[in-house]
Design a protein around this nucleic acid. Structure first.
Lengths: 190, 190
DNA sequence: CTAGATTGTCTAGCAGTGCTAGAGTTCGGC
DNA sequence: GCCGAACTCTAGCACTGCTAGACAATCTAG
């Protein structure tokens, strides 16, 4: 029956509208500004409509986060293709800086997104796989662990760069040094 | 006048009680459980009393965070005395794991504590100085930047260790590799 | 020892939050 | 045109941080 599929389509569109609007609000004013009331008003529906699509507010943020993982995977791939591990690093930290609200949704806000298990969303693994591919050439054994270390180091810089916790003028130097730790033998480091 | 100082003392004691209770609540049930009502009930005063001591809830969390920085500085010093950069790393990640609520207050929760500027609390610099002392022996130039990189890497591991975002069974291997990156020439790494 | 001013403390309430029950409306199929 | 299902809204609950204004305790001065 066609009416059924039209409804499905309308539902999917509205769901998309909610996610898009939540993202816009978060990127414009931060996640603390994304309340059910403001979001409902913005999409021109009442609050209960949100709950027809998502179990709760966190699920909406998780949907936005999923978009972020897709974008991050793309950005990392491009950065790596352009300039290997150094390009990947630049891409990661660049994305985190340009989209702090997205980065929050993905990594800082407590979320129900599972990471290490088998039912981890595929797109979430993709980003990790990109980092793995970037790190692998420079390690001899246990690339997985090395990748986790490198990613953690990236994540640390991404979060501490915020709020002037690290000297802003040395942002680039920190990124460079991190890459050097993996690609340049210690004896040759400047 | 003695009555004045007694009052001062009573005030200071009550302030201490508030901070201690907030910490206990946070460590037992997480910061989302630390509400003005619960905290007030726990210290057996009404909510407005809290505001006689602190401007808002965040200021209370900041006071707890300050305690955390003191403890972290001590722990880092001991760890470094015991086993250099490796001991310091173990101490840092150990503290973060054993006191997640404290670590949140110090580094994850948005706070008004200033970091990089001149009016940064002394105790906050101490912890950084410890890491600096641990890293310095292994770098030739720009120890400050190297310290920021190392600290960021520690912070990344500390936060991502939570919520099964990194494989729990490789926790130690990640810590070891991070230290190796600084102390062992790349060519000698396993 | 009492009167007055100063402190301290509490009750009650505001404006906001996430979330939901139940009423009301719109719509598709017959 | 009618009925039942799907949908959407209004109104409200229990909570949050925070505060104004009433009340009580305490100290100072005569």
């Amino acid at each position: 029956m066609p009416s059924e599929s039209r409804r499905e389509r309308a539902r999917a569109e509205r769901r998309e509208l909610i996610v898009r609007t939540a993202r816009e609000l978060a990127e414009a004013e931060g996640w603390e500004a994304v309340t059910t009331r403001r979001l409902a008003e913005q999409v021109d529906y009442s609050q209960p409509v949100l709950y027809g699509h998502f179990a709760n507010m966190d699920a909406i943020a998780a949907a936005v986060a999923l978009q972020g993982f897709e974008e991050l995977a793309v950005v990392l791939r491009e950065g790596r293709a352009d300039d290997g591990l150094r390009g990947l690093t630049r891409a990661y930290l660049g994305y985190a800086e340009e989209h702090p609200a997205m980065y929050d949704a993905m990594f800082v806000r407590r979320t129900e997104l599972v990471f290490g298990t088998t039912d981890t969303p595929a797109v979430l693994r993709e980003a990790f796989t990109e980092i793995l591919a970037g790190v692998t050439p420079y390690v001899t054994t246990d690339a997985e662990t090395a990748t986790e270390v490198f990613w953690s180091a990236l994540h640390g810089q991404a979060t501490l760069n915020r709020g002037a916790r690290l000297r802003p003028e040395h942002r680039q130097a920190r990124a460079d040094l991190l890459v050097d730790l993996f690609v340049v033998p210690a004896v040759d480091r400047r």
